[in-house]
């Protein structure tokens, strides 16, 4: 159960893993996620299901090494198993024939937006994908996204590849300023990136869907750790989301809540790195 079938390094600190899980593979849809727990003392972390193979009974996850659990996960090898794998969780992305859609992903969020791109393309949309990363070396899934998009724009913060700049401003310059009509935008990535995109699309009155990455514990709606404020109402990201209308999300609250355990996360990671937590 939950065996690691494949493992690949996509960039310096982003890892792709294929996990054995026939039930989740069969059931999952774009936009959904899993919760995993590595071992008895581990924490539960949410990760998006990037892809699945029903025949092989596998799902794919992509994660960035940002702390103890992701570092531990990255250190596992093909053949190792995760103690717990729960899913698929959350509402699937609302896939329909919208017309021309723009999918914007940043950093490891490119992995999260990828299944949405695939599903939108399959539903007959004209898909413009804009993906960005800090540098060329940290860009992921370029080939896969190109194959599933009508057009792909790549950006890097340092200009080492593609267009120099942030995905948000490049989206404005390369698509909106050129007068192209856009029916819907999907954007997933770091909070500042989603905020920037939503600010632009709000001006242009383009409905924009974001996928939120709140802190989660159970992810089945029983605790409210992942609560966010959407259009003035408290929503639980795990059961009401993870996707919401970006123009209604209180991103300041989301950022504040994401910072809640910073010190403890750092403590756990430092202990792990120096090997003094026994793992």
């Amino acid at each position: 159960m939950n065996k690691i079938i494949e493992k690949a390094s996509l960039s310096e600190n982003i890892v792709k893993m294929v996990l054995e899980s026939p039930v989740i593979a069969k059931k999952r849809k774009a936009g959904q996620f899993i919760i995993l727990k590595i071992n008895e003392k581990g924490e539960r972390i949410p990760l998006t299901i990037v892809d699945s193979d029903v025949q092989k009974g596998t799902i794919t996850i992509i994660f960035q090494i940002v702390g103890k659990t992701t570092a531990q996960l990255a250190a596992l090898n093909v053949g190792d198993s995760l103690q717990d794998l729960q899913g698929p969780l959350g509402h699937p992305t609302e896939i329909a024939h919208y017309g021309r859609v723009v999918c914007i992903g940043g950093g490891v969020g490119v992995g999260v937006v990828y299944p949405v791109i695939v599903a939108l393309k399959k539903a007959g949309n004209e898909v413009i994908s804009i993906i960005g990363s800090r540098t060329k070396a940290s860009l992921i899934l370029e080939k896969e996204i190109r194959e599933n998009s009508d057009r792909l724009i790549v950006t890097t913060d340092d200009g080492s590849y593609g267009i120099h700049g942030f995905v948000s401003s490049v989206f404005e310059q390369e698509v909106l300023d050129k007068g192209e009509h856009v029916d819907r935008v999907f954007t997933i990535g770091p909070v500042p990136m989603m905020v920037a995109v939503c600010k632009i699309t709000k001006l242009h009155r383009i409905k924009t869907i974001v996928s939120l990455n709140s802190i989660m514990v159970d992810a089945t709606g029983m605790c409210g750790a992942c609560r966010v404020n959407v259009a003035g109402k408290t929503k639980f990201t795990c059961v009401d989301g993870p996707e919401f209308d970006g123009h209604d999300v209180d991103f300041d609250l989301l950022s504040d809540r994401l910072r809640m355990y910073c010190d403890m996360e750092r403590e756990a990671y430092e202990k792990h790195k120096c090997g003094c937590d026994g793992n």
Partner: peptide, 17 residues
């Protein structure tokens, strides 16, 4: 849930804060 199920009271021996 953090305290009981995840044993956060034993952090950092257990990973949940």
């Amino acid at each position: 849930t953090r305290s009981n199920l995840m044993k956060a009271y034993l952090f950092p021996e257990y990973d949940t804060p």
